[in-house]
Design a protein around this nucleic acid. Structure first.
Length: 831
DNA sequence: GGTCGCCTCTTTTTT
DNA sequence: AGAGGCGACC
């Protein structure tokens, strides 16, 4: 135990478990504990745990059992406050491991919290209710699957599974996929669920909405039939179970005397409602919400910053504690962040300060191309490494995943170890998903999504027609595809039976085998291995399948398999809980552990859950000293000695899809704020004049964010204003007046042909049309610069129509994207 | 009826 | 650059 000044004798883990049971016994315990804390707290004031906390942190850590809202700026020691508070509450006897729930958003954050807490106290953090919203909901539903109306081994659909399930629904309903785009429908459904709305709760405003509601309903039925639930459903089911079952609700409200929620600004409506089920205002539990409105970056998926204000009001928070002292960055970095974020209008108000001094300037670099940007970045990173900075302390951030490619290949060619977070995650790779689908079918043959994914992969003579017949049969009888195989006659039918036979026999064959053996078997029997062995590009995929076996092995051994499953019998079935009159309906009868092993879940089922919930973030070689690559979103909560923010270009960052409304732009700004505040010592901002994206070249203008940073904190590594960012029309004019013209093409956006293609050959109708219009308007070329008397200079992005109808889409940078009628607008080409 | 290969469209961010 | 859709061929 590494708490040097613990006044109490060291408590053995068993004793803590005793406490754990006691914790479920009701408010009296809480009260006694609080009294004990009163005394202990004084003694602990100068102990190691509370040492070096600033006054605000101290106040937050040692707050009594009451609702609290902590406004915690970036780098203000938020995680430290959270973990120290839990540790302090436990040390002072106010809390037992079983009576606290700590919720985070990302797996990374919850792991971090567990690690830190584990280092402070000798507790089994795995058994504690520390996890992501979705992880905890999963745990909750595994415990109460029957009450929740789920099959015991329910599986979780990830985003892409969900979209393909919805696609099937749309097809089955014979709806037009153009009009009901599966992805958008998925959005609609997730959005409804996040507002706690079932199909019946949504108002059928118009025909479109009416149909969407029908799809939602059918999708629900389908998921229920197949025994699967999506991410949003995890939350919604848990919420509804709490809402509709007083006995369960009462149990958990008594059990958790303290609930801590991290990144509260990112909670959506449902998550807040969920929290209120576990700890309603006025129930007297200690609910601590920690958040930073300036770091709210998930509005796009339903996060409501307003939850912070609502929380303050509804829970009658006495005093909001603001953590504004930053311990991470030098002031040049902080000044930049502060200045930038001050442009946002809707803020709770908070300014970070530091005692660290100005530090180095923020370095700005302009590259000619994304390739050059990557090259420069690598040289700079190498220099940093030579100067003694660990590679893992160097982060490269970008707005969208697609940007990582260039950087990756440059790093690869230079032989620099790197690690990419996010992007195509391990469990999302096609071959891995195939393998997982086979595994899911072993566990639950009625999982139609998995069935369809692999029924004919590798090909085994089951085509679209056969599947259509099968789906019809299934629909008629209301059964799963697997159950309906017998209904299809002929060759196709026997092929289908061969497939289900393959699944069944593998299941029998591997009965009682280890997870590793099961996976090895299915890879062979399914023919996946053979398929990739014969595929000329299959080597890497085979490797990934091998990696899947490793991951399973690691999951079983190191990870201590089934933490969610194992944790349950211990604390759900605690004598305390039962003696407290925990209703029979949710008591042990609901657990049907494996007769032989006593496991609540099979290792396979647990592994599949793990694969859905943690898309394989930590599959990349952990521990190696590697440069860290990630999106700005996934960098939240992390910090590095040196940070490169790349691709700071209009249309990319801020992203073009967000620029239309001010809310979107403010979110982009918060995103930039998050990115900047990741850096401890060195911050680099880079942008590029051209960039290859989706196989096309884009011509870029530097991000408007450069104009929102304090000049004194910046140092331009390339000549300032060489590029064509803000106010470039003016620059253009002066350059024009000097008679030099402009050499480079400026502007931002997509162009129809590759940049360096000197002999353009129209590849599509669109291009051919563009070519035609260009001929009519001599000299205008897509991808080239144009000049407009009012808007100045821009880049021609699209040409459409002909004659009087001819239109042009031009990006005028500062003046934005515009569609112009060529019969009216006077556009002159610039070379 | 199945398979293969060419064509098109796509992509913001995540549990 | 990669996946899904569509048409031609087996």
């Amino acid at each position: 135990m590494n708490l040097p000044h613990d006044p109490r004798p060291e408590a053995p883990p068993e004793e803590l478990n005793e406490d754990l049971f006691a914790a479920a016994e009701g408010p009296d315990t809480h009260q006694l504990a609080a009294e004990a804390a009163e005394n202990a707290g004084q003694a602990l004031a100068s102990s190691g745990l509370l040492k070096n906390l600033n006054p605000e942190q101290y106040a937050a850590v040692t707050l009594g059992q009451e609702p609290a809202l902590i406004l915690a700026g970036a780098g203000s020691g938020k995680t430290r406050v959270l973990t120290t508070r839990i540790a302090w509450l436990m040390q002072t006897g106010q809390l037992t491991p079983g009576s606290v729930m700590a919720v985070t958003f990302t797996n990374k954050a919850s792991k971090e919290m567990q690690t830190r807490l584990g280092a402070m106290l000798p507790v089994n953090v795995r058994g504690m209710w520390i996890g992501t919203f979705h992880g905890l909901c999963n745990r909750f539903l595994r415990a109460h699957w029957k009450l929740a109306g789920l099959p015991q081994g329910f599986q979780i659909l990830d985003a892409s599974d969900s979209v393909s399930a919805i696609k099937r629904v749309i097809k089955a309903m014979k709806l037009d996929e153009e009009r009901f785009v599966p992805k958008q429908v998925s959005w609609f459904i997730a959005g409804a669920k996040e507002d706690a709305q079932r199909p019946g709760d949504i108002e059928p405003r118009d025909e479109q909405t009416k149909t969407l509601i029908e799809i939602y309903k059918a999708y629900e039925d389908q998921c229920q039939r197949e025994g699967v639930i999506d991410f949003a459903e995890l939350m919604l089911r848990s919420y509804e179970l709490m809402r509709d079952n007083p006995a369960v609700r009462d149990h958990y409200q008594r059990r958790f005397s303290h609930i801590l929620v991290d990144e509260f600004q990112d909670t959506n409506k449902l998550q807040y409602a969920w929290l209120k089920m576990f700890a309603p205002p006025g129930r007297g539990q200690g609910v601590m919400a920690v958040g930073d409105d300036d770091q709210s970056i998930y509005a796009f998926r339903g996060a409501r910053v307003g939850n912070m204000a609502d929380f303050e009001r509804e829970y009658r928070v006495k005093k909001v504690i603001k953590l504004e002292q930053n311990y991470r960055s030098y002031s040049n970095i902080l000044d930049s962040a502060n200045e930038l974020i001050s442009r946002n209008s809707r803020r709770l108000g908070k300014t970070l300060r530091t005692d660290a001094g100005p530090g180095e300037p923020v370095r700005v670099y302009e590259a000619a191309s994304d390739f050059a940007e990557a090259q420069w970045l690598i040289e700079e990173a190498q220099a940093l490494h030579r100067a003694g900075i660990d590679r893992k302390e160097i982060a490269v951030l970008y707005r969208s995943n697609a940007q990582s490619r260039v950087i990756e290949s440059a790093l690869f060619n230079a032989g620099i170890p790197y690690r990419v977070y996010g992007g195509l995650r391990f469990f999302e790779r096609a071959e891995v998903k195939h393998a997982l689908s086979y595994l899911r079918l072993l566990e639950n043959p009625n999982d139609d999504t998995s069935f369809l994914r692999v029924v004919n992969f590798p090909t085994r003579g089951i085509g679209a027609r056969a599947i259509e017949l099968l789906q019809d049969a299934a629909r008629m009888s209301g059964r799963s595809l697997y159950q309906s195989v017998g209904a299809v006659a002929g060759k196709a039918g026997s092929n289908l039976q061969a497939f289900t036979g393959l699944i069944d026999s593998t299941r029998n064959l591997t009965q009682g085998h280890t997870l590793r053996e099961i996976i090895e078997q299915i890879l062979e029997i399914s023919g996946l291995n053979e398929f990739y062995r014969n595929d000329k590009d299959g080597a890497e995929r085979l490797e990934n399948l091998g990696e899947l076996i490793n991951a399973a092995e690691a999951f079983v051994t190191q990870e201590g398999f089934g933490k969610d499953a194992v944790a349950l019998p211990v604390d759900e079935l605690s004598p305390g809980a039962i003696s407290e009159g925990f209703p029979a309906a949710v008591a042990p009868a609901n657990f049907t552990p494996d007769a032989e092993t006593g496991e609540i879940m099979s290792p396979l089922a647990a592994f599949l859950t793990h694969a859905s919930l943690e898309a394989g973030d930590n599959q990349a070689q952990a521990g190696q000293d590697a440069v860290q690559l990630m999106t700005v979103h996934s960098s939240k909560g992390l910090e590095f000695d040196a940070v490169f923010i790349t691709g700071l270009e209009e249309g990319l960052f801020p992203h073009e899809n967000s620029m239309s409304d001010s809310d979107g732009l403010e979110e982009e700004r918060r995103l930039m704020y998050v990115a900047i505040t990741r850096a401890r010592q060195r911050l680099y901002l880079a942008f590029s004049q051209t960039r290859m994206l989706h196989g096309q070249t884009r011509y870029n203008v530097k991000s408007r964010f450069f104009d929102e940073l304090p000049e004194h904190a910046l140092k331009w590594l390339t000549p300032r204003n060489q590029g064509f960012g803000s106010g470039f029309a003016k620059e253009y004019q002066s350059a024009w007046e000097r008679g030099s013209g402009l050499k480079s093409v400026v502007g931002a956006g997509r162009v129809e042909k590759p940049a360096y293609d000197t002999t353009p050959v129209p590849k599509s109708m669109k291009q051919a049309a563009a070519q035609k219009v260009a001929d009519e308007h001599g000299g205008l070329k897509v991808g080239k610069g144009v000049f407009h008397t009012k808007f100045g200079e821009g880049v021609l992005l699209t040409l459409e129509g002909s004659g009087a109808d001819a239109r042009a889409q031009v990006n005028f940078g500062r003046h934005g994207m515009k569609w112009l009628a060529l019969s009216v607008a006077k556009l002159t080409p610039i070379d």
